[in-house]
Amino acid sequence: MKWDISEMGSWTYGQFPPGAIIPEAGNSNDYITGGWRSERPWRDDATCTQCLLCWIVCPDSSINVADEKVTSFDLDHCKGCGICAQVCPVDAIEMVPEGCELPGVK
C-alpha cells in the first residue's frame, strides 16, 4: 500500500498507525537524506576498474549500478560518509566538499 504521509506534520494523535507501525514497505526511499552531507563522492571513470567494492561497502545503497557497472551516486540518499573513497583500491573516488564543482579544486 502507498502510505500518504505528506500531511503528517499536522496529524492528530489518532491518525498515526497504532504501535508506530509503518504500513508501507520500502518507503525510506522517499526520505531524502542527502541534505545531511557536507562532502560528496566524485568518481573518475577513467581510473575506476569497476571492482564494485564501493557498491559492496556503501552503508546506504547509494552506489548506482547498471549492467554490473557503477554509473553514478544516489545523491538523494548518500550522506557523504566517505567509505567508498576510503576502500577504492585505485583511488578513483575522491570526497569533494559540497559546493565545489571539480575534483582537486580545494
Partner: peptide, 19 residues
C-alpha cells in the same frame, strides 16, 4: 509492514503515548 520504528524529538512519540 515495519515494526519498531523511530520517533525521536519532534516525532509523534507523544501522540503514540496518547494512543
Amino acid at each position: 509492514v515495519l515494526h519498531g520504528s523511530f520517533s525521536g524529538l519532534g516525532g509523534p512519540f507523544f501522540e503514540f503515548k496518547r494512543q
